[in-house]
Amino acid sequence: MSTRRPTVAIVVFPGSNDDRDAAWALGAMGAEPVFVWHDETELPYETGAVLLPGGFSYGDYLRCGSMASVAPAMDAVRRFAEGGGLVLGVCNGFQILCEARLLPGVLRPNRQLEFVCDDVAVRVENPATVFTSRCRDGQELVLPVKHGEGAWFADEGTFVGLAARGQIVLRYAQNVNGSLGAVAGVVNERGNVMGLMPHPEHAVDPLLGSADGGLLLAALVDAASERVLAAA
């Protein structure tokens, strides 16, 4: 039994601000977090998973996540994802993955045009993904949200297809931002890239109000461990 901690690469863009919380939380879940600066062109050797953190990359210029989606590090992330590597995007990270077209849809300004900052309940719609393997079907997770542009949108045909294939992974119990179908998180068709607006890394200890985020991050670390072991 190997006790090696799997490497999770956290890509840091100018304006990322949840990278350190993500590193702390992933460390607590048994991973070895490694920061990757946005202009690096390779991920660390033996990267088991990638996390794109929350924040305001490039000052949210043009559209949230659009500038980051073409950063050099994203070429490496794209190659990693295309090879089947696990990628989780949180908040701005979700926006970046949509802008990079690694995930379907796009995040739009909140319906109410107000920044939303709250602990919210999200329902697990698909517990069969690698990211939700520690969750039960229909389980409600309490996770914080803090975003101004979190209203997920896709055209109707795309949305219907995603729902039919189980790619809508998380929905808000109460739609906090006007997302189509109250979508809070989606996974790609292959099942190795997921994005969500709520912040699991801020909810890994009861002292923070909820430890439910640990279920998602621990599942990522589980899967990253298995992949690193399988490759060894």
Binding site: L62, S66, V70, G105, R108, D155
Partner: peptide, 9 residues
């Protein structure tokens, strides 16, 4: 197509 506009919206 690659950056300035998002064709979805």
């Amino acid at each position: 197509d690659e950056l300035l506009a998002n064709p979805l919206i």
